[in-house]
């Protein structure tokens, strides 16, 4: 029952993060809100019985794609007028501290209330073993095609970036 409440809370936070990402004025804030949305999605995946996908979500989306987006944004000349200098007011620091406190209490409450069976991520419903078995037995051709798509993507990205006059 408590996981239903957690799912509802995460849903509301997800909509808020999506709106923040879509309506942000600064691309940096948009990308960071996208990272928050991906983290919340990983939490939702854990609650929905997909621990392996939650790990994949954090590693690929937050670890690789968010960094890629931030890299590209930082490469460009941002509109200087849209950037405000960083101000460290005491209220700002206090609010960040409060957010950290809320997150920590949420973590401990969730850990004491939501009980995952032991070894769930290894042999359970959405575990790496079961997904790998499905992928290798029933979805072998799509799996190979996906690897081919990634290869073509690498070639395309290099071809776009490369200068015509060599290197």
């Amino acid at each position: 029952m408590i996981s239903h409440v957690l799912i509802a809370i995460i849903s509301v936070l997800l909509v808020a993060a999506y709106l923040a990402a879509v309506l942000a004025g600064n691309p940096v804030y948009s990308a960071l809100s996208m990272g928050i949305a991906f983290f919340l999605t990983a939490l939702l995946f854990v609650l929905l019985g997909a621990p392996f996908l939650a790990a994949v979500q954090v590693i690929i989306y937050v670890g690789a794609m968010l960094v890629l987006f931030l890299f590209i944004v930082m490469m460009f000349d941002l509109n200087k007028s849209s950037l405000t200098p960083v101000r460290f007011k005491p209220s700002t620091i206090l609010s960040y501290f409060l957010i950290m406190l809320v997150l920590l209490t949420g973590f401990f409450v969730a850990r004491s209330v939501v009980r995952m069976p032991s070894g769930f991520a290894i042999t359970g419903f959405g575990s790496a073993r079961n997904i790998g078995f499905n992928l290798m037995h029933y979805y072998l051709l799509p799996f190979e095609l996906a690897s081919f798509v990634l290869l073509v993507g690498v070639f395309g990205a290099i071809a776009f970036i490369k200068n015509r006059r060599g290197t």
Binding site: L53, F125, G126, L135, Y139, V154, F160
Partner: peptide
């Protein structure tokens, strides 16, 4: 588990798409 397998495919496509699109943006 079919849905979760498809999520892996979607993540693959999203990664390739992000790489291509960001390369286009740089260009």
């Amino acid at each position: 588990l079919d849905g979760q397998v498809f999520v892996i495919m979607v993540i693959t496509i999203a990664a390739a798409e992000a790489a291509i699109a960001l390369a286009l943006v740089v260009r």
